[in-house]
Design a protein around this nucleic acid. Sequence first.
DNA 1: CTGAAAGCGCTTACAG
DNA 2: CTGAAAGCGCTTACAG
Lengths: 337, 337
Amino acid sequence: MARRPTILDVAAHAGVSKSTVSLVLKNSPQIKPETTDQVRRSMQAVGYVYNRAAANLRSSTTGLVGLVINDLRNPFFTEFAASFQMSLFSRGYATVISNSGEEPEVQAKIITSMIEHGVSALVISPSYGDVTATFAQIATAGLPTLQVLRQVSPDTGQFPFASFDYGDGGLQAARHLVQTGARRIAFVGGLPGRPITAERMQGYLDEMRRIGAQPIVLYGRPSRHNGAALAAELLREHPDVDAVICFNDLVSLGMMSHLARTGIRPGRDIRIVGFDDIEESAQTWPPLSSVACDITSFGEKTAAALLDWLTKGKKPPPVHREPVRLIVRASSSGETA
Amino acid sequence: MARRPTILDVAAHAGVSKSTVSLVLKNSPQIKPETTDQVRRSMQAVGYVYNRAAANLRSSTTGLVGLVINDLRNPFFTEFAASFQMSLFSRGYATVISNSGEEPEVQAKIITSMIEHGVSALVISPSYGDVTATFAQIATAGLPTLQVLRQVSPDTGQFPFASFDYGDGGLQAARHLVQTGARRIAFVGGLPGRPITAERMQGYLDEMRRIGAQPIVLYGRPSRHNGAALAAELLREHPDVDAVICFNDLVSLGMMSHLARTGIRPGRDIRIVGFDDIEESAQTWPPLSSVACDITSFGEKTAAALLDWLTKGKKPPPVHREPVRLIVRASSSGETA
DNA sequence: CTGAAAGCGCTTACAG
DNA sequence: CTGAAAGCGCTTACAG
């Protein structure tokens, strides 16, 4: 391929200096309209492509935001990514997304690469692991950086954290089940020691204590597949359970498909509440009750908060918890549409 | 924040020239090990961050690949994105992912931005629309660019196209249903005029012609939600249908949840085959037969093909079709596990 | 309203 | 094995 044309080529073609071309590029009002038009035509003619690397080198403000996602295969995170990116896009910012795939080493390299490529800010839905070196690197680079959905750095003063109020969601789910008559309630799915598991379970544990019931907890990887396995384990070990709060909807859906196989009817024989309210939950049969976390809105708010920080210097509060809301459907109420 | 340190700061700290620092950066073997170590220590000490924009400006090879995805909310595409990125990552290339959200205008701006940021190559799973200007821009930039999964530019000589052999998949599905006794077979879901719909339907139409059966086609947006609506329409308009090939698994799953509601049992009362074989299909109840498109492997092969082009100048063939394979499960065979 | 000059932080030959 | 100098393609004051 031939060398890419530069502003010098454009300037030569238009018969002006390169400064003038540069000013046209920035839509400067101080260039005569006729000159601007001529320069634009010359850009077309020579096939000019703006070289942002060169521009950044001089001005050092890229309008590029890096988004690091722990699992691009999980719809919850991709919905966040899509919403966040659209929101930034509409305000003139470009977002580069990278997937760490739950591997802290990959995450470290991605972040290094993004910093080297000159992103102006970072939003990280982090992979768990030893991330002290990674965050130290961000600190020395001096980049505005948000932790979202998972907190891995304790330094929320420097790296503000935003997520959902999962604790309250667990409480809403447990109260709903108790109020509709359930007494033997299990919490199923989620990995022990993980903050999100602990948060979602806390409200459940509190409510169990309040009514003087014994908690029943089955940990496990929160996948659809494992949901089915956990359902089998639950039926075997705790056949008298009358309600279940699942770590997330994937676990609920896996559980429901196992129950369908054994002829047990959710909502009639056992009440089920999930977490996240993914699209599928409203459409499965019976429809699944779920604690709704409005991730689309969360993506938009995250974008707004980041831009406030970036452009107005308004740093977000160290911790922000977005409210959640229990959606009651047939899987926990017994009503069939 | 203070100014970012440069190689000059590192050089001053280490007591060498900036050329030496630059050579250390590139792991040049011609620098004495002791000097290398000293320079590395100085980088740590001053908090040096490599500025890739400046480096690119001089050397103009970025090792950055742009991936433009039409719908980051669709697991099929995110699985491709994740696999592609991991594959490139393991070979030392960084991938920036952006989502066009099925909007050709957004796609155009994303691609402009990526070119300006100096990507070395582009892989596009495109949004439909008028993309002539977009591809013209890529052509003038002279970037190796692959179209995947959807073809929008007819110029496959310049922009090679790779996808799955959907036509053969439709044929496999139709033959399977015919061989297991179905005669009134419908094709449900997919938008008229879309190439992928046409390809997936073609094998079905061929087989219907071969057995002298009348095709029954119900078009519709290929979502889970619409799958349920299409199921209702199908039962109403064509109550004698004994088998269905769905445009994709989401449509199948939506259809199956509607059928569950009405007491119709897939695999016994009506045979169903989907397309894509997403993870959920094996785990729903009854398990869903599906034409498997190994998107993970496709992502890896795409990465390999792109690197062959980028590093060895081996341009991929204009059109490549990856084989697909029908997975028979209970939804179309009546066998229950 | 437009041009000449310096400089952003690197890499790249070229000396030594 | 290491240093001095030029240059990548822009932007930014500063003149005019």
